[in-house]
Design a protein around this nucleic acid. Structure first.
Lengths: 227, 227
DNA sequence: AGACGTTTGTGAACCCATGCACAAAGTTGA
DNA sequence: TCAACTTTGTGCATGGGTTCACAAACGTCT
């Protein structure tokens, strides 16, 4: 009777960030032949509180059955729909160094919905190499390519100094969703969505906590000062 | 007169997550010969509000000068200290497929403080290959290696099904900081710190927002229901 | 020396996210 | 059919994080 809440209500960012994890776990359960899960069980698998899981799911609609739990198949489908994975998302990768190669051949990349349609690099040494059936082309051909076969998401896998120029090229071609692996802050017009994945940032955060642990563990060299 | 606040106070997680970005930007400014920045300028570079930057920095101590700003060199050093980057962090990578290779040769990896001391993979085809001067060894040698030349951080770059076993091996050897690139939730004893980086999660979040944008942009097919 | 302009550091208000606890709703079994 | 049990969906309280706004502190200029 009521419209799909995923299209009408606002889904909090924190929830959206967890939906892929729920979906992945549900897919695994489905493969294992599990038909139904309770919020308690699923939450335990994913590593969150059951109340949080239920509240997250409530933002997409009411797909559970009280006293029973959630149908695995149905819930997976509804999360896929909410995330937009029932559509097809053509992806282009710019920068085919080590990281670009790894991304292009990463199997998890090709999972539902995502499809690599373009690989770009200006290095002539890479020209016309093919990865997963897609040729590597110079970046200048991006706009032309995009006009023929539209790209929804651009992935930047270049060194940091080139990232802003590549980003400008992507935005200029009309791409408004960008995943940036370069350690650089990109400035983009409003309406363009950038997410950054940064290895060294993650390492530094780990280092911070490791340092905290080692200091807490009775390393009294640091107790330099007193009141 | 007072002790280093970084060692006495608690630094919020949200702040810690931003410190690497501040540090990177400060390093770039230092290279460009900039001696001093205001919170307003630095915040603009990083893409945060100046009040947030000041509050973040206030957690490490009081290193600014009112009416002037922050000394670039000093602030970079203090952030490095807070993050623990004045120490040396030996890193091991497990899983030398495409991603492992890319990580090992990633230049940003070797930046201050981090040093690759071990590469592991059980595939005999990779045995004794060397990357950046480090040999690839079978995972069974991890514990022995760790005893001789301690490893602070373990990086998991294997396929998802192998991730938990690798994680158990790392934890068993005594490593308590883990960076996980496999799309799997790892269960670890308390005291072990795991951070996950997942490409397909990031893509799915982008897809969600892209879908939202296209729905909002006058795509009225979806306006199915009305009161 | 003193007034003025600038910028930091932080108290206070707001906002979002998490976790608790329970009523509502469904199933199962007698 | 009805009672007992299970599990969802959610109102409410709690806690962190972000932003505002301003007093305190510093340099500069006269």
């Amino acid at each position: 009777m009521s419209a799909d809440p995923a299209l009408r209500r606002e889904i909090p960012d924190a929830t959206v960030a967890r939906l892929p994890e729920y979906l992945r776990t549900l897919s695994r359960l489905a493969e294992d032949g599990v038909l139904s899960v309770s919020s308690e069980e699923l939450a335990a698998e994913v590593g969150v509180r059951s109340a949080q899981l239920r509240k997250d799911l409530s933002h997409l609609g009411s797909y559970g059955v009280r006293g029973v739990g959630y149908d695995v198949e149905t819930l997976a489908l509804e999360i896929s729909r909410a995330l937009g994975l029932t559509e097809d998302w053509p992806v282009a990768i710019v920068g085919m160094g080590n990281l670009g190669h790894a991304l292009a051949s990463y199997s998890g990349f090709v999972t539902k919905g995502f499809r690599i349609v373009g690989l770009y690099d200006d290095d002539p040494a890479l020209a016309d190499e093919r990865i997963v059936g897609v040729a590597i082309r110079p970046l200048a051909e991006l706009t032309e390519h995009h006009a023929v076969d539209p790209i929804a998401i651009g992935v930047i896998a270049t060194p940091a100094p080139a990232a802003q120029a590549v980003c400008d090229a992507l935005v200029g071609a009309g791409i408004s969703s960008i995943l940036n692996f370069a350690p650089a802050v990109l400035s983009v017009p409003s309406g363009v969505d950038v997410r950054r994945v940064d290895l060294s940032t993650e390492l530094q955060i780990l280092a911070f906590h490791a340092q905290r642990k080692s200091l807490a563990a009775g390393d009294l060299r640091s107790a330099v000062a007193a009141p």
